[in-house]
């Protein structure tokens, strides 16, 4: 496996802090999305970029510890949230995908308008984060030798060292 981590320790140090700032920015963009430029998609990409940058500083194992979940599972969770939001109104006799707003008066924050659209947006957010990071990690952790086979027969990439998400028979390769 080749090491995609940045070589400079200073950069590696900074990247960890940049990660937090970008993450906070992503959350901000997500929350204000319904009323101002932003939203789940944009926030998702921003958060994914921050993870990708973090990935440059950390090894694959460290990344796995931080992320805790397989990115594909994160994306699938996003799908479930989105589908759930869409299906829920059916059980209340409304058309599929009808959104509801809840108007709350919270003591400190004032009038709060929260609605089911946020849930759908959150689903989008998770899907974008999951998908983007999954692709980046797969690319960055695939081994050099595989690419060489690509160069030889132009036929596609062979085994990778990814965890066996798709192909259970690749399990041996993971332990390299």
């Amino acid at each position: 496996m080749i090491d995609t981590r940045v070589k400079s320790p200073i950069l590696a140090f900074f990247i960890r802090y940049i990660f937090f700032f970008i993450t906070i920015f992503a959350v901000y963009i997500f929350l204000k999305g319904h009323n101002a430029p932003g939203g789940g998609f944009i926030a998702g990409i921003i958060f994914a970029i921050s993870l990708v940058i973090l990935n440059m500083a950390l090894s694959a194992d460290e990344m796995k510890q931080i992320l805790h979940y397989d990115p594909l599972q994160i994306a699938t969770t996003g799908l479930f949230i989105a589908y759930g939001t869409a299906i829920a109104p059916v059980f209340f006799g409304y058309p599929f995908m009808l959104h509801k707003m809840i108007h709350l008066h919270v003591p400190l924050l004032g009038n709060l308008h929260v609605g089911t659209p946020v849930l759908l947006d959150f689903g989008v957010f998770l899907v974008v984060v999951g998908v983007t990071t999954k692709m980046t990690f797969t690319f960055s952790h695939s081994s050099d030798s595989d690419i060489n086979t690509l160069a030889q027969d132009e036929s596609g990439l062979s085994n990778t060292n990814e965890e066996p998400v798709v192909a259970p028979t690749n399990e041996q390769a993971t332990t390299e």
Partner: peptide, 9 residues
């Protein structure tokens, strides 16, 4: 993409 990258054996 995963299917492409990880050839099914």
């Amino acid at each position: 993409i995963l299917g492409l990258l990880m050839r099914w054996q």
